[in-house]
Design a protein around this nucleic acid. Sequence first.
DNA 1: GACATATACTTGAGTAGTCAAGGAGGTGGC
DNA 2: GCCACCTCCTTGACTACTCAAGTATATGTC
Lengths: 179, 179
Amino acid sequence: MTDPTTDPTTPPAAGPAPLGTDPLDTDPLDTALRLVRAQAAVVKRFDASLSGLHGVSLSDFTLLLHLSQAPGGRMRRVDLAEALGLTASGVTRGLAPLERIGLVSREAAARDARVAYAALTPTGRERLAEMLYTARQVAADLFAPDQWSSEDGTRLSTLLTRLGGTAPSVPPAPPHVLG
Amino acid sequence: MTDPTTDPTTPPAAGPAPLGTDPLDTDPLDTALRLVRAQAAVVKRFDASLSGLHGVSLSDFTLLLHLSQAPGGRMRRVDLAEALGLTASGVTRGLAPLERIGLVSREAAARDARVAYAALTPTGRERLAEMLYTARQVAADLFAPDQWSSEDGTRLSTLLTRLGGTAPSVPPAPPHVLG
DNA sequence: GACATATACTTGAGTAGTCAAGGAGGTGGC
DNA sequence: GCCACCTCCTTGACTACTCAAGTATATGTC
């Protein structure tokens, strides 16, 4: 068992070591903490724009985006949870307000009475198209070309994918997903 | 005003463009969503190890880490909030349990009765040393050398810093890392 | 065809944060 | 020395999740 979660609590005799011991090579812990920080900043920017213009959070948007990419614009809640990296109850709770405002509807499955599909409504699809426009602007702004070359973006994306467990599944996409 | 938050809700006449329009060049929105996903996965791993071994969350750990790096092992709550990217009330709430379990103490400021310093206790310092050992292991595991060259780590760190607004302030440091 | 077990979903209670409002203390103008 | 205003911190009410438990339905075994 080399899994850190199973290691003893006791540090080595040397005692509490400081961070960043080797200045040549970036401390992995430092990198991980930077990741957390960067994400918080990014989420804030998306939330600000999306909630200001469309009244939804980044989580709402991501949920709708996943639905829009699923065949028939609908998914089982379990699969949505898997795709979003949430628990089933997180999905139940996240869908509730979207159902209330009519962006998503609940559909029964013909062959399995346990499942309740979450389906994008026509309104939901329209509104998502608008949100997508906003989200793309925020993203473009975040990776503004004066600071970010397209290579940098690609590199970051690649490195993040290596960390992220499952990919967020944003497919390369056909001529038009939403229109 | 080129700020996306002030743009009209209406997408351009062309209508909602699909994701990944140009397959050659990574979609910035896709990259941003990957960032969110990767962070969630990373936080989960830290939380699992830290809470399993030391009974604290990654947020708790980060808070203690910042305190330990401050002169005198103490900081004003406002500065802590700034450093952590939280609001003042988030800090108040985050400190409460750490005070209860004796890792942090509250200290009055001599010259300003409004401020309540948060100070690392000797116990807090000891426990933090243990947590740091665990956290370094998790980070090392996350960026395991069979997948990650130290260059990759450095690159990721650099790219994230460009996104992250303020850096998490993990200073370089003196001898001995883990063993 | 009944029972054990597994799956899909919801719900109650708890955690970690937010924002808005408010108390207590400092500061500068006059 | 008083008043307006600013800063530091806490609190109440809310959001967005988590986990554990519960309900309803499906499935496989005998």
